[in-house]
């Protein structure tokens, strides 16, 4: 990504520390709400049990496997995807849209920072925080309640970590692009809800994208959403390995660049129409 699409005259050099501190601040801000994290984890786990039950029954009816997932892999898909919900904010975040709706976004522009980059840093902090109180306990519950088959080799975990990182960056960039439409629409809450439902389905939240009928799978892969969840899960649980895993990661990276640039263009254009709300 070009670093200074918006501000060719921005200061350069020593540029990383502020973003690192913003990431930490995002992390620590989340820590202020341990009950919300616990409630989120509990919800994810309950729905995990439901999804595991339904998909296991479907696989049994289909003769033991579903779309090439073995029974244990299907359970792994369910629990890894449930554990990722907080990490990639699959249920959406209100923050940026809310800042535009209320006009607080004005203060973001009074800092010597890239607005998209600053929000990305804070969102990554939020994302990383969710691993401890939401991601790992959810996986542990899954392992205890239904069990799952995870890869024995190290490669899926290494590639999976890369894929997860790209997934959360991509998730942020998509949510940012939707929120920035608020420069034109002012209130993007309805749009954000629609986006959450649509993206949730196409990212493979309710059913693995690989288990979609082929026409629906084609539509899904024309969107960035499988790269937010289905791809990293498939890489992590060892369904996509070797060149397939690398290809999935490359597709994720391409979406990151594409949606990231889209967000930057929208931000630059939006400032021309921006009408800061609330005086």
């Amino acid at each position: 990504m070009r670093a200074n699409v918006l501000d060719p005259g921005a200061p350069r050099g020593g540029a990383v520390r502020p973003y690192w501190l913003l990431l930490r601040a995002g992390f620590r801000s989340q820590a202020a709400y341990p009950l919300a994290a616990a409630a989120g984890m509990f919800t994810n786990a309950v729905f995990g049990v439901l999804k595991a039950t339904v998909l296991t029954a479907a696989a049994a009816a289909a003769g033991g496997s579903l779309a090439g997932y073995s029974g244990g892999q299907l359970l792994a898909y369910v629990w890894v995807s449930q554990a990722m919900i907080g990490f990639v904010a699959a249920m959406g975040t209100a923050e940026i849209g809310e800042r535009i709706r209320t006009g607080d976004v004005a203060t973001d522009f009074t800092r010597p920072l890239d607005v998209q980059g600053a929000h990305l840093a804070a969102d990554l902090g939020r994302s990383f925080f969710s691993v401890l109180p939401r991601g790992l306990p959810c996986l542990a519950i899954g392992a205890l309640v239904t069990g799952m088959t995870l890869p024995a080799a190290a490669a899926p975990y290494v590639l999976g970590a890369v894929s997860l990182l790209l997934a959360t960056v991509l998730s942020f960039l998509c949510r940012y692009a939707v929120a920035i439409l608020g420069f034109w629409l002012v209130d993007t809450r309805g749009l954000a809800t629609f986006y959450t439902v649509l993206s949730g389905f196409f990212m493979g939240l309710s059913l693995p994208v690989s288990a979609f009928p082929s026409w629906l799978r084609t539509i899904a892969h024309a969107t960035p959403f499988p790269s937010v969840m289905a791809s990293p899960v498939d890489v992590l649980i060892g369904r996509l390995t070797g060149p397939d895993a690398i290809r999935a990661i490359a597709v994720q990276a391409a979406w990151v660049v594409g949606i990231g640039l889209l967000g930057r263009v929208l931000t630059a254009r939006g400032r021309r129409t921006l009408e800061v709300q609330g005086g």
Partner: peptide, 23 residues
Amino acid sequence: KRRALAARIGVVFGQRTQLWWDL
């Protein structure tokens, strides 16, 4: 020159906060 300018000016919007709400 928004970012270069941000280094030279300080702004307070009385009805908004530039602080981190939870920190």
